[in-house]
């Protein structure tokens, strides 16, 4: 039995009310609770007030904003709804796929897109009961002052483990944040920072209201590749989002732009660079998959922060990159 610590719960009906409540010291947002409640049961934090977003209807919408050319997905939309929504499936299939592969169907019925983007970083030394942690004296992210992943390290490198985040960054999505001071929009590529204790630039008084994902403006192929020990329930151990913009709507058309984003490394997702060599090449050319897999392997260095050895996961990053591209080519 894992007990929750004591706290008060408020259930506002509008974003403005929620923002006012969240401005109180010790207040914390809870959406589906599937990340926050296990962390509270593990005593990783102790908020005095949970501001539930469950009754804030404004956060539950999925709409096309044709003028801005974006799909606006409310932060409170469940992962089941994201994965099944016709607009998401039609325009953003890799996002529907990633959302549909989070955890289990039961958790996707509860968990939200906003919660997935703001999922706390994870580490084998911290996502444990307080009793378990007491045996190793905690760590920088809990009650201790050392890091067990990087001995001597002064910075927490717990893993950004969201399935949707790499995909959203590959699709150039932006987040809309709201607080009593107003609102701001920022690209998700700039949302994360390399500190496992505070891995986003969101201020504690800000609510994520929606995610804006640009609609495709030309032919493209996108994929999300996840490897975990079991095919359900487990967090990703290898997580790669790929996006290829193409000169024509066929896999033997030339690549005009490419984005590759990798998760579950450190506390921020990594955008793979130096992919210019594949621009102008047909996606179906096997050399493209080889070149991209080689860059992924060279630039992404998994850490011993989640289960499975880092060298193995590094090899698997290349394998899963190749397989994902092969699947896209086979699908035509």
């Amino acid at each position: 039995m894992l007990r929750l610590p004591g706290f008060e719960v408020a259930t506002p009906r509008t974003i403005d009310e929620a923002a006012t409540l969240l401005a109180r010291p010790g207040a914390r947002v809870v959406a589906g609770g599937t990340d926050l409640l296990p962390n509270l049961k593990h005593r990783l934090e102790q908020p005095s007030l949970l501001v539930s977003l469950a009754a804030v209807r404004e956060l539950g919408e999925v709409v096309v904003d044709a003028r801005a050319g974006v799909l606006r997905i409310g932060a409170g939309v469940t992962l089941t709804a994201v994965s099944e929504h016709p607009l998401v499936r039609e325009h953003l299939p890799s996002l529907a796929d990633a959302a549909g592969r989070v955890a289990s169907p039961l958790i996707r019925n509860m968990g939200t897109l906003g919660g997935n983007v703001n999922l706390d970083t994870r580490c084998r030394y911290v996502n444990q009961t307080a009793f378990w942690r007491s045996a190793i004296g905690g760590c920088l992210k809990s009650e201790g002052n050392v890091c067990h992943v990087v001995p001597g390290g002064r910075n927490c490198v717990a893993a950004m483990s969201s399935d949707c985040v790499p995909v959203l960054i590959s699709l150039e999505a932006a987040a809309v944040l709201r607080s009593t001071a107003g609102g701001r929009e920022l690209p998700l590529a700039e949302y994360f920072q390399a500190d496992g204790r505070e891995h986003t630039v969101r201020r504690p008084d800000e609510i994520m209201a929606e995610i804006r994902v640009p609609l495709p403006t030309g032919p493209r192929r996108c994929a999300y590749s996840k490897w975990s020990v079991r095919k359900s329930i487990d967090f990703p151990l290898v997580s790669i989002a790929l996006r290829f913009d193409l000169a024509a709507d066929a896999v033997d058309a030339a690549i005009t732009a490419v984005r590759v984003v990798v998760g579950v490394l450190g506390s921020r997702p990594r955008e793979v660079t130096q992919l210019d060599a594949v621009i102008g090449q047909p996606l179906s050319d096997p050399k493209v998959a080889e070149a991209i897999a080689a860059r992924v392997h060279a630039q992404c260095k998994p850490l011993e922060n989640v289960p499975y050895e880092a060298p193995y996961r590094r090899e698997m990053l290349a394998v899963h990159t190749r397989r994902a591209i092969a699947r896209l080519v086979a699908e035509g």
């Binding site: 809870v30 589906g32 609770g33 599937t34 949970l50 539930s52 958790i107 509860m110």
Partner: peptide
């Protein structure tokens, strides 16, 4: 809708 009662706050089923 099937959900996990262990991760649902009781007050959320009002």
């Amino acid at each position: 809708v099937p959900k996990l009662a262990c991760l649902t706050l009781a007050v959320a089923v009002e």
